[in-house]
Amino acid sequence: MTIKSIVTVAAGALVLAIGAGAAGAYDGTKCKAPGNCWEAKPGYPDKVAGSKYDPKHNPAELAKQQAALDGQDARNKKRAEHFKKTGKWVYDVSKL
């Protein structure tokens, strides 16, 4: 290893150390892009999928909220249409 390469390696180590130090001191100000400033904390994954912190979300569970809203919206629409036609609000859509 030449002196030059030792210096290069040392410089690289310094950069790594600074990088590690920066992550260790996560303060939310080092942005990848405007409005995107989160960094993984030291020892924690950048992505949790496949890590020990993987929440293992079930896509079927994740879809339930939107499905509920879509169902409500469809029922509300029927109620409002009936109201506009008749002037009477009927909540029970089975009676419409």
Binding site: P34, G35, N36, P55, H57, P59, A63, Q66
Partner: peptide, 21 residues
């Protein structure tokens, strides 16, 4: 104030579909 962030961040700043919950 473009530095606040503009487009694509409502999904781009989440992992996978975590934004749905």
């Amino acid at each position: 104030n473009p530095h606040y962030g503009q487009k694509g961040l409502g999904t781009g700043t989440w992992e996978g579909d975590a934004w749905k919950i």
